[in-house]
Structures are given as C-alpha cells and as structure tokens.
Design a protein around this nucleic acid. Structure first.
Lengths: 253, 253
DNA sequence: TCCAATTCTTGATCTATATCAGCAAGTGAA
DNA sequence: TTCACTTGCTGATATAGATCAAGAATTGGA
C-alpha cells in the first residue's frame, strides 16, 4: 500500500542518473518526435526500487497507473477464494503491467517483485490525455493491449491443451524470446522465479516442473543449474512447443 | 474470405429496418451526445447475417475491423499445429470480437458463427480516428480491451486451477451473467455451442462435460434438456465456482 | 418422413500428473 | 559457523479425467 501509493520522485542524484537515458523510448517502444518524447517523459515517474517480495500494487486497490518494468521482474497474481495464489503473469524489463485495472478502476491482481525491481509509474489519466494529442501513442497503447489479449489467449491454449513437457518447453522458449528481444542471450538466462511459481503459472505441481526439467537435461535439450538455464537444443525445444502460438512466434517492436 | 471482406451495406429495405434502432448504443454501450452517436453510426456497417458455420474472419487474414455481435453467437478459435481446433472464446450479442487483431494487423484467430448471427462491422481505423475526437469513446475502448484482458486472465485461472465440476459451473454461470446483463433470464437459457465445443473451450473431454452436467442435474443444481439449461440451485452453483473471479462477478455497463 | 450423420450419454479401462514422503542442497539470520 | 527454513529433487502411490467403445437421441438433407 505504502509503496504503491508513494509517488515521490527520486532524490536529485538518482534522477540525474536516469535523465539522459531515453526512458520513455524504453517504456513505450515507439517512434516519437523529440518534443513528444519530452511530453511523455514529463508524466512518467521513476519509483524507488522494490525489494524482492514487495508489492507494487495489490488486488482491489484503486487503479491509477500502469507501470513499465525497467529492471528486475514482477509477477501478477490473484488470491483465489480458497486462499491459494494463482499467478497470471511474469513481467520482464520493458513490459507494461497494470493494464487490466483500467476497466473497473481497480487492479484485479496484485503485482509483486521477484527480485530487486525498478519501474516507471505512468499515471493512466495523463497517458490517456496525452494519447489524444499524439495519435501514434494512442495506437501504440491499443497495440500493447491487443498484444496482451493475444498473449493471454495463447496462454489459454497452453493451459487447456498442452501436456507438462509442452508447457515447460513453451515457458522456457517464451522467456528466451523475451530476453532475445531485449538484446540478451536467447540461450542462457537466469530464472527469477522459483519452481513453485513456474508450476503455479503453468498449472503443474512443483514436482512435475522439476521432473520435466531434469528429463529435458538428461535428453540434452537444456542445461539446468539451479536457476541458470541454457537451451542446448533449440530446434528440438521448438519442435516440442509446436509451430503454433501465432502471437508468440512473431517478434515485436 | 468473401464474407469478411464484403463491406456492402444492406439493401435500402434492410437498412431502413435498422435505422431507428440506436445501433451504436448497443454495439459500444456508452453514453454519447446525439451528434456523436451519429458520427459513430456513420462508420458502422451492418453486414448480412452469417449462417451457422460461416466464418466472419479467419486466422491470418488482414485485420481491418472489429465486430459487434447483434444477434446469435460466435466462437473464436486457433488451429494448432497438430491440426486441432482450440476455442478461445464465445461471443454473445453486444460483445466485441476481433480486438486481438490490432497488434499484428492480422487476426490471430478465426471467428465462426455457431448459429445464424448478425454483426456490425466497425472499421478500426475509423474507430480509432473517431476516438481522438470523442474522449469518452477512446476511454470506452480502453475499458473494453482492459476487460477482455481481465476476463482472459480469469479464464487462465479456470484452466490452470479448477477441476471439471468447477469449470463447468463457472462456464454456465458466466453465460448466465452475460444473458442477465442483456436483460434475458439468468436462470434459463439455450446453449448455442455443442458439448464438444464446451469441452474444447474448458480443457475437458466431451464425455467429461456430459457426465458433469448429468451429475449436476442428478444433484438438483441444474436442469438439462439437450441444449436448454435451467439453473435450479444458483446458490450452490455459486458456491462451486467460489467467490473468486474479480472480473466476472462485477456487473458491467 | 425417413435415413444418414452427427451429437450426446453412459460404462469400462487407462494414464498423465497430482499427491505424499523423505532427503539434499541452498539461503539467510545470529 | 551453525541452525532453521525454504527450495529443489526423486521415488511410490493415488486419482481425476482421458480414452475407448457402444448405444441412444438429435439433426438435417432429400
């Protein structure tokens, strides 16, 4: 609560540290005229880093901003009536979280940092106003929301139709694509979430995630060392996932 | 193809038949000034009815419009690489289909009529332009997309965490809420989709859907007569579903 | 209205994955 | 460093729901 409501800017030292990085270009990847970039920058607030486990916002809280992840990772989740957590998404740098709150004006999920995480806060009412003046910004917003719908529907296919092997392979390749898009290695990366969180997200028991990964390693598909993952046989992994996933296979922006 | 690309207006006879129904108010439920309603009406095209089984658009086809269902029902689906159909949603009257096409400028799914169905075609580029001039329209669009994201995430929870009973109960209550919202009975309605389609959508085998419904009937929760469903014990059904579903429980618009 | 094709239902089995259990390996606080 | 706690791995067993099979009920076309 305290955290997500604190809109304080950083101290001048930290602010200046970020000033000449084209922040908004990162947050909302889009080609804008310089003056528009400035206008966008003016409404964006840098927040203090979240420590692992801290909430960015929580389920039911009033919606007023979307957030762009700068560094670190977030998860969003629901608490179901039976008290268990259901993870609905993981958010890596450059990804936008909070869009689901627009409709009801309340966040329908909570967002929690999986590691030390920094975000930009973008007050939605300002963003919406600005989008009236900058058509390409409005279009980009529509696109981002459309992509989210598309991605979520792929996730529905995964949950409804795929077996444990396909789920885990899809998950790892999806992360791989997201890292690659950001300019990081597509074949070697660190999982910021636990096995339990992966299982929760994929609709699998922890033990199943563990077993599948071990078997993938045994079969030379990947190399696992705790949270460090290397994809060894990308072709075979892609074969497992199948050429499906309309949304996921196309590289964005 | 032919169908989804034909933007021909109806003959004058049909057009006049619809002219004095406030069409846009139905398509995009929103309070607009009269002049704005007219502007919206001008960009909306009524299409000839689709017969059962006809495609409104298909996976991969270029995106140019979203569609509001007027009467009947649609399903959207992917064809997976293994050739099977995966249904990603059902669309009842007043609901908007096609939003997932904005991002890539191609529909990532196909949309097929489950029965004779009429839709309004809303060319998205026009809608987007108009939304610049009518802020409340833009906001409504953001809300609709946000709600879709929210609903899809509830669906992910359903697919990932719920058992067969909970899935079927959730499905029936979700339909019930949607009918109620439109002014129809929340307790007695007709399923326009087959058991097979329900199972496909819920990640269950046809047989399981059949068995669960039979058991629900035996236990006095519902009454089933082919495609006619009556919800007898609403309280018990809601208990089955659980008080979860942030998005679904709140009545919209 | 009749026949063929589809859809639905019900029962019998099978299986992928959950659950249970116990141990190993990290991780963090004092 | 040690201890308590969490996270991860692996084997044994249980089970929800899939699959297989066959008959019943609908549906739709001629």
């Amino acid at each position: 609560m305290a955290i997500s409501n604190s809109n304080n800017r950083f101290s001048s030292k930290l602010t200046s540290q970020y000033q000449n990085c084209s922040l908004s270009a990162l947050c909302l990847p889009i080609a804008l005229a310089d003056e528009d970039v400035n206008r966008l920058d003016q409404i964006i607030e840098r927040k203090r880093p979240l420590k692992k486990g801290e909430l960015l916002f929580h389920q039911g809280e009033e919606f007023d901003s979307v957030f762009a992840v700068r560094t670190g990772t977030l998860k969003t989740f629901n608490i179901t009536n039976s008290g268990e957590e259901q993870i609905t998404g993981f958010y890596c740098p450059s990804e936008l979280v909070g869009l689901s709150g627009i409709d009801e004006n309340h966040y329908p999920v909570s967002a929690k940092a999986l590691e030390t995480t920094t975000v930009c806060e973008i007050p939605f009412s300002h963003l919406e106003q600005l989008s009236s003046q900058i058509p390409s910004l409005k279009h980009q917003l529509f696109r981002l929301m459309s992509r989210k719908i598309c991605d979520d529907q792929q996730m529905m296919v995964l949950l409804g139709k795929k077996n444990a092997d396909e789920k885990v392979a899809s998950f790892l390749l999806n992360l791989s694509h997201r890292f690659k898009k950001r300019g990081y290695s597509a074949t070697a990366f660190r999982l910021s979430m636990s096995r339990g969180e992966i299982g929760n997200y994929l609709g699998l028991a922890v033990e199943t995630v563990s077993r599948v990964m071990t078997r993938f390693q045994k079969n030379g598909l990947i190399d696992v060392d705790g949270k460090e993952i290397s994809i060894i046989d990308m072709a075979e992994m892609e074969k497992l996932v199948g050429a499906s996933s309309e949304c996921a296979t196309i590289e964005h922006v």
